[in-house]
């Protein structure tokens, strides 16, 4: 996993609530068997229906931070949504809240989700729309700081932070605990009633 420490970038606004994963990457692109190439289709349907979409505006072309409204990433479990954002150069999404599976997928790929109070998030969203808003998002200090010096802190799970700062993925952690997992599985064995491939009847 790609580590995340700190990013300074212009912030792009996405003034929508309940941005779903079909909006982020339409299902028609999910037939790919690679993790690459989804960035070109990020927010594809919004590009045509929403002329003001940040992707349609040259001034946001280098933005690595997106600010959106509540419940970002709802809907399907497709990790392709996270790959599409990262593929388009986005490293941070700021919103008042995120959907669960999307948040989980983000933490596995080095996409930092920053949850800010709804009023703070709304103010920043407005600023990013109306003017050029540049900010630094720093994971170690768990802070967002605008270029004119205003700052806010955000909560982040300590274990997830540890992993993200170092680029450690869950696979290594889980594999290091395989003995413990096997012991747990043995304890659960009396409650298991099938083996796939060998039907009971």
């Amino acid at each position: 996993m790609r580590a995340f420490t700190s990013i300074t970038s212009m912030a792009a606004p996405l003034p929508l609530k309940d941005v779903d994963t079909d909006m982020i990457i339409p299902a028609q692109h999910l037939t790919s068997i690679s993790r690459e190439g989804f960035g070109a289709h990020l927010f594809e349907r919004l590009r045509t229906t929403m002329p003001s979409l940040f992707i349609n505006q040259a001034r946001y072309s280098d933005a690595q931070i997106v600010i959106a409204d509540a419940n970002f990433g709802c809907g399907s479990s497709r990790e392709h949504a996270v790959w599409a954002l990262l593929g388009a150069g986005i490293r941070v999404v700021i919103a008042p809240s995120f959907a669960d599976i999307f948040a989980s997928n983000s933490s596995k790929n080095g996409l930092l989700l920053v949850t800010l109070e709804p009023n703070v998030s709304a103010d920043l969203l407005r600023e990013a729309t109306e003017s050029n808003l540049s900010m630094t998002v720093d994971l170690d200090s768990q802070s967002v700081m605008t270029s004119d010096g205003r700052s806010w802190s955000f909560a982040y799970d300590p274990f997830r932070k540890h992993c993200l700062l170092r680029g450690l993925d869950d696979m290594d952690y889980l594999r290091a605990h395989l003995a413990m997992i096997s012991a747990k599985k043995a304890e659960l064995e009396p409650y298991s009633f099938f083996r796939v491939g060998t039907p009971n009847r």
Binding site: S76, S77, R78, E79, H80, V82, I101, S104, N105, K108, N109, D157, D169, D170, M171, Y173, L174, R175, H177, L178, I181, K184, K185
Partner: peptide
């Protein structure tokens, strides 16, 4: 029963487990 992303599918394939809050 719940949905997971592809990274987690890999974790379950490899370890029969995943990390959950």
């Amino acid at each position: 029963a719940f949905g997971i992303g592809t990274s987690e599918v890999g974790h379950v394939m490899a370890t029969g487990a995943l990390l959950q809050a």
